[in-house]
Design a protein around this nucleic acid. Structure first.
Length: 529
RNA sequence: GGGCGGAUGGCGAAGUGGCUAACGCUGUGGUCUGCAAAACCACCAUUCACCGGUUCGAAUCCGGUUCCGCCCUCCA
């Protein structure tokens, strides 16, 4: 298995510290707002990586922190008049709502800065003792010149950085590149006690301390967005390696950025999309698919048409599951068992190997996705040409689809959509009303009665008045049953060659985002997400 | 100024020395269908920003040019 390591700038063979175990740490959000689409990329990417490692037999221990003490949180809390820690805790809750919706597995541990102050203060103290840090007026700075390897991750040296000269000069610092480990509290600000006076930690020290606490001095994989390479991860290395005297991280992985019109999406530019707003318009599995359909290190440009495309592509994949499911369910009796030559299974297994090879190559989800679509085509093809009455074929397809689903779960693209859709129930009832009126007009009493009966089974009374019919019901009728009824009616009208009504069902549903598809002996429906 | 990465068909996106340049979306033709939808089959880049070089052979390696993004300041 090859992983691109930012430290070397190359792909390297992955060798975990302990056989079959992976210790990984991913930088989590600063919780002062809802997360945006850009935040979602590393979440999905590293969630996928984690699932894949587990699939490959590794026991993954995954830590993701929350920065719940930070200048931005303090600023925001002033704006909103809410206690900083309370505000942070609230947005941690919101974070989980979003992450859960996206199907992100929870980390084994989600440590928070506010709960690790003792260790942080202790670590800063050790850095001072060892000569890697110094105190100025209650602030503590890391002495960058003391750490010989400073710049090894981001490939820069201190002298070049000065030449760029966009670093603000703070006369109190020994070197302009020195960064804060501890910031003294200003009047009325949130603070913790320390030997250097009341204050709070600088941004970088938390990750060093918390990863050390839960994963030890050296970890296998550390992930995060590209922009964290410098200064955040560079500083983490400086702190951890100065503290522990040994290598901090074996593999550094960084995801590329999401851009809008080829410009970075960020809070500071104001061109960001809140994930929750995106999830209002597109289902979570579509967003997830979109985020992994491109290699994780490539930039990803965002606009609505990309999600539209993702929706269609993913729809094809999901449809394979539906088609195969029907095929497998078609014949109950075990008759006509002729053991097939298993060409399908052989093909699927080969594609699974291709898939694994792609993923092993620096986690190439884009290439793996290609294999996955080829699997879908093979499965669809089998369904189209096969005989569902043949138990042997059903068994073969069943085994093949098992592999297909397993790999889909590694990618996490088959998330169940949550929640009922009351607005769709209403829409469906309108169609019933229209059908009943049409049937009554034509004195097609049998059809009209059948419509009333179907509704009755869902606890809905249809009442015919002089201006039309109305539906009355208590509670929330299930969409499934109502749709099942419409499918029955469509089949019935088609049987009578009453295409006007059969088409009315299809066309009206289409307008409401539901697709009707006729099958050999019935009809099925699906929601166009 | 320094560091990193990118430029592949109508769109998105794989591919790092050699079979027909994956895969998806879109489009076109066909099969199926009452008509559709879905599915299946077929077609859609003599060409990989540009110039030069290495090589029997390059989208892939080397040199140069142009354009673009990111980092050097909080940001995934």
């Amino acid at each position: 298995m090859q992983i691109h390591n930012t430290l070397s700038g190359q792909k390297e063979e992955f060798q975990p510290l302990e056989p079959n175990k992976v210790k990984m740490y991913v930088c989590g959000p600063t919780t002062y707002n809802f997360i945006h689409l850009g935040n979602a990329r590393p979440l999905v990417v590293f969630d996928c990586l984690r699932r894949y490692l587990a699939f490959r037999g590794y026991d993954v221990f995954y830590v993701q922190n929350f920065t719940d003490v930070d200048d931005k949180i303090i600023d925001r809390s002033r704006e909103l008049g809410e206690e900083p820690l309370q505000l942070a805790a609230r947005f941690i809750g919101e974070y989980f709502r979003d992450a859960d919706a996206l199907g992100i597995m929870r980390a084994n541990i989600h440590p928070r800065v506010s709960e690790h102050m003792t260790e942080i203060v202790e670590a800063v103290g050790v850095l001072i003792e060892k000569g890697f840090a110094y105190v100025v007026d209650g602030d503590v700075y890391y002495r960058v010149r003391a750490f010989a390897d400073y710049g090894k991750l981001s490939n820069r040296n201190l002298d070049d950085m000065l030449a760029g000269a966009r670093v603000e000069v703070d006369g109190r610092k020994e070197d302009s590149a020195d960064f804060a480990l501890w910031k003294s509290a200003r009047e009325g600000e949130l603070f913790w006690e320390s030997p250097w006076g009341p204050g709070r930690p600088g941004w970088h020290i938390e990750c060093s301390v918390m990863s050390n606490r839960y994963l030890g001095k050296t970890l296998d994989i550390h992930g995060g967005g590209n922009d964290l390479v410098f200064p955040h991860h560079e500083n983490e290395i400086a702190q951890s390696e100065a503290l522990n005297g040994q290598k901090f991280v074996n593999y550094w992985m960084h995801n590329g950025f999401i851009t809008i019109n080829n410009e970075k999406m960020s809070k500071s530019l104001g061109n960001f999309f809140i994930l929750r707003d995106v999830l209002d318009k597109y289902p979570a599995d579509v967003v997830r698919y979109y985020l992994i359909a491109t290699h994780y290190r490539s930039p990803l440009d965002f606009d609505d048409t990309k999600l539209e495309e993702a929706r269609r592509a993913l729809g094809r994949l999901k449809n394979t599951l539906v088609l195969a499911g029907e095929f497998i369910a078609a014949g109950a009796e075990e008759s006509g068992t002729v053991a097939g030559e298993s060409r399908l299974l052989a093909e699927i297994k080969q594609l699974e190997l291709d898939f694994i090879e792609a993923m092993d190559d620096d986690f190439n989800t884009a290439r793996a996705m290609g294999c996955y679509f080829e699997m879908a085509r093979a499965l669809n093809s089998f369904v189209a040409a096969g005989d569902s009455q043949d138990a042997g074929q059903r068994r073969e397809l069943s085994e093949a689809i098992g592999i297909f689903r397993k790999l889909g779960d590694v990618l996490g693209i088959f998330i169940e959509a949550e929640g009922s859709r009351p607005e769709q129930v209403e829409g469906v009832l309108e169609i019933y009303v229209e059908l009943r009126q049409a049937a009554r007009k034509e004195k097609d009493w049998a059809s009209a009665d059948r419509i009333r009966d179907i509704l009755g089974e869902s606890g809905i009374q249809i009442q015919d008045g002089s201006e039309g019919s109305k539906c009355r019901y208590d509670g929330s009728p299930g969409l499934e049953a109502l749709m099942g009824g419409l499918m029955e009616l469509r089949v019935m009208f088609r049987g009578k060659k009453d295409f006007a009504k059969a088409d009315l069902i299809r066309d009206e549903l289409r307008k409401k985002g539901i697709i009707v598809e006729d099958t050999k002996d019935g009809a099925r429906w699906r929601i166009l997400d």
